[in-house]
Design a protein around this nucleic acid. Structure first.
Length: 569
RNA sequence: CGGGGUGUAGCGCAGCCUGGUAGCGCAACUGCUUUGGGAGCAGUGGGACGGGAGUUCGAAUCUCUCCACCCCGACCA
């Protein structure tokens, strides 16, 4: 490809509304353009990368025996009513009517459609197992789309659905997909982790998420430094502390703490550690009242664990400020477990702290040297916090480490939820109708692209892994339009590359070298060859890998061998 | 949805407070010079200032209204 004939639409300035680095770089590199909130076009450069991701997925899915098909975005309401999700789904589901006032939606996922296909097409257990997949545009009407294509409303997803006659079959199909996903993510060339996850409302016993590791990731994942335990932090059990409660010493006292509302204020103001302070959260109870949850000041509440408690409303809702002041008589910031007239549940690790600091349930006052069992009743304890760095692994040995990740893949077992509700049955060996066991496997194709950038970039721009790069090689001639020797050497090299099937971008634009270099670095091409008059005269060319510190000069007659080596890697 | 903010040229912004008919940088186009890290000089084109209504002799500027977009929204208790 000649750059003069390609739509290279790089921007020197960063558009203001791009918050995260991948969004900024995708706009600056000219990969995407926005039309409305969460709605993007993919320009030719961006599409080349998207296609790379799709192709890798397609090859591995095919290899795993899945069959590609293509299902519609526009989906009739009847199917969603059959599965029960027409009413269950919130405003994320974009509903509309056609000219005949028939209800429909733009598909956020395709369980209903694929189940409809299955029940029409498949009658016998002999046709199983079966796995249909597609790479297709989805629409989810996010409340607040953000971060470019990372959380957009319209996006491309690979979704696959497996069908088996029984649970064992489903497990097998799931395992096959698990391996296919490992193959896919390996080929992406990204640093990722497969982690066990909450299977959510959809049900099913087994569920794994695939996260691309990046500091900017929205999810926290915990994994053991020994062994292969890895899980989304929201699912990880915090083991009860190994330490005993420290023996009590001083009497409890009440102190003035004006203006200290946060744990940080309190710890600084009183000269104690955050661990020594109790954080008391008031949430809505199952019966409509309120419940107090107490954590160590340096710990965070885990919403999933909390809402699983019998007394706590699910989903978890924090009490409104007015509700608290009306019921407890003190403002948020001065609430504590001592003398509190609410059901109180204390995290295991908070329950072993002695001589702690907590709100006194009077504005601007806290207790110090408070102790469980002495100054109030022995607490009811539970695991309600997120694990932190250094916590023991809940399975086996080792300590936990917390990393941040971007969820780009999710595989889980659906069971018979859709096949039963939509009456998709096949005949088994006895000629009896059986609802098949399904599995569901997604990869956010557009999100993979953003996640790759989020993980691989520097101050000059994107650094693509070779397998995702839009072009493998950039040829940068200096004075292509002025110097005949440079033009000749460049054209020769270009032909040489084309003959070898190398995806090459020849920057033949009449621009100054600095501009060319900056653009090629911004769009992240892994390899760069520079041809200058000086170099060509000396029978040399210059090579630099995108993340190399410096360039190297090599003899021109070694170029063909060099290309062979580069291309074979 | 609640709170905050922004809409002026393709992009980034100034002008608005204190009304008088729109400007800067980058980008684009033409010419000359320059050519190893986002060049210089000269010139050119492009915007009824988000839409509507109002106040006024006169509105980008003041008022009302609609729309679009951005940011924040449990770690504070």
């Amino acid at each position: 490809m000649r750059a003069s004939r390609f739509h290279l639409a790089t921007l020197k300035e960063t558009p203001v509304d791009a918050e995260i680095i991948s969004h900024q770089l995708m706009l600056r590199a000219g990969m995407i353009r926005r039309h409305a909130a969460g709605i993007y076009s993919w320009l030719p450069l961006g599409l080349r990368i998207l296609r790379k991701v799709e192709q890798i997925i397609r090859e591995e899915m095919d290899k795993a025996g899945a069959l590609e098909l293509l299902m519609p975005s526009f989906q009739p309401a009847e199917l969603w009513q059959e599965s029960g999700r027409w009413d269950q789904f919130g405003p994320e589901l974009l509903r509309l009517q056609d000219r005949h006032h028939r209800d429909a939606c733009i598909g956020p996922t395709h369980e209903e459609i694929v189940t409809d296909i299955f029940r029409r097409e498949v009658n016998s257990y002999r046709q199983l197992p079966l796995n249909f997949y597609q790479i297709q545009t989805k629409f989810r009407d996010e409340i607040r789309p953000r971060f470019g294509v990372m959380r957009s409303r319209e996006f491309i997803m690979k979704d696959a659905y497996s069908f088996d006659i029984d649970k064992d079959g489903m497990q097998h199909s799931y395992d096959v997909m698990d391996q296919a996903y490992i193959n896919i993510f390996d080929r992406f060339g990204l640093d990722y982790r497969a982690v066990s996850a909450d299977s959510g409302a959809i049900g099913g016993s087994t569920s794994q998420e695939f996260h691309v590791l990046a500091d900017s990731g929205e999810d926290a994942i915990a994994f053991s430094e020994q062994g292969n335990f890895a899980a989304n932090i929201e699912t990880v059990e915090a083991l009860p502390p190994e330490t005993e409660r420290v023996a009590t010493s001083a009497e409890m006292q009440i102190v003035d703490t004006p203006g200290m509302y946060t744990i940080e204020d309190l710890a600084n103001g009183l000269g104690v550690s955050a661990q020594q302070c109790m954080k008391t959260l008031i949430v809505e109870a199952e019966d409509g009242g309120l419940v107090a949850l107490v954590l160590r000041g340096d710990h965070e509440l885990n919403a999933l664990k909390a809402e699983r408690l019998d007394d706590v409303a699910s989903p978890l809702r924090l009490a409104q400020r007015e509700q608290i002041t009306a019921n407890l008589g003190s403002d948020i910031g001065s609430i504590g477990p001592i003398g509190l007239s609410l059901k109180t549940i204390v995290d295991h690790s908070a329950a072993v702290v002695g001589d702690f600091v907590c709100g006194a349930n009077q504005d601007d006052k806290h207790f110090i040297n408070a102790n469980w069992g002495r100054d109030c009743e022995e607490p009811i304890t539970a695991d309600i916090r997120n694990v932190v760095n250094g916590d023991p692994s809940p399975v086996g040995t080792g300590r936990l480490k917390i990393l941040r990740g971007i969820e780009v893949g999710h595989i889980f077992q659906l069971g018979q939820k859709y096949s039963e509700s939509m009456q998709a049955a096949v005949l088994d060996e006895q000629g009896k109708g059986v609802a098949p066991f399904m599995g569901c496997y997604g990869i956010g194709v557009t999100r993979v692209v953003a996640a790759a950038i989020e993980q691989n970039h520097d101050e000059h721009g994107i650094i693509w892994p070779a397998t995702l790069a839009p072009f493998q090689l950039a040829i940068c001639p200096i004075n292509y339009h002025k110097s005949e020797p440079v033009k000749q050497a460049t054209d020769n090299l270009y032909q040489e590359c084309l003959a070898r099937g190398i995806e090459v971008l020849l920057d033949d634009r009449a621009l100054r070298p600095g501009v060319i270099f900056s653009d090629m670095e911004l769009i992240g091409i892994p390899h760069r060859i520079v041809l200058s008059e000086r170099g060509v005269t000396a029978q040399q060319f210059e090579y630099k890998g995108r993340s190399d510190d410096s360039a190297q000069e090599l003899p021109l007659d070694e170029l063909p061998a060099f290309l062979d080596k580069l291309y074979s890697d």
